[in-house]
Amino acid sequence: MSQPIKLSIPSHPKYLGLIRKVLQELLNYHEVPDETARRLILCVDEACSNVIKHGYGGPCEEPIEATFYIDGDDFKVQIRDYGKQCDSSQIKPRCLDQIKPGGLGTHFINEIMDDVSYCTERAKGTLLTMVKKLKSELTSAQEKDKE
């Protein structure tokens, strides 16, 4: 298993571009197809935005720690914060039938990732773990190329 890549950013939207760039470089290095890479970056960005909005109650300078693992076919990312803990059973994507602004971040994460879990069994904050199987993405990208 390769060493995880760890990055800690302050909980302010101005640092979201930085975390996206680091992840883009990492996914490029592992030759993850562009479309998959874009989607994984979207999920990490949305997760960090949710931490800023809901965990810390708005932009501030508290830590958001992201740890990226690429192990064989698995891409795993863990997002750790030390803010307000949420009731994970209440984190649900909203119905898309109604066209209204907001509430799409959780939908993106659930739609794109294969496994999503929130752990609040700690003194402070939440540990979000998201996993994506890259093998199926690589296969479908290769099939697209053949067409």
Partner: peptide
């Protein structure tokens, strides 16, 4: 790149 807040802004415009 656009995230859910950007999409929300365009939905508001709509």
């Amino acid at each position: 790149y656009i995230d859910s807040s950007g999409i929300a802004t365009l939905v508001e415009g709509l």
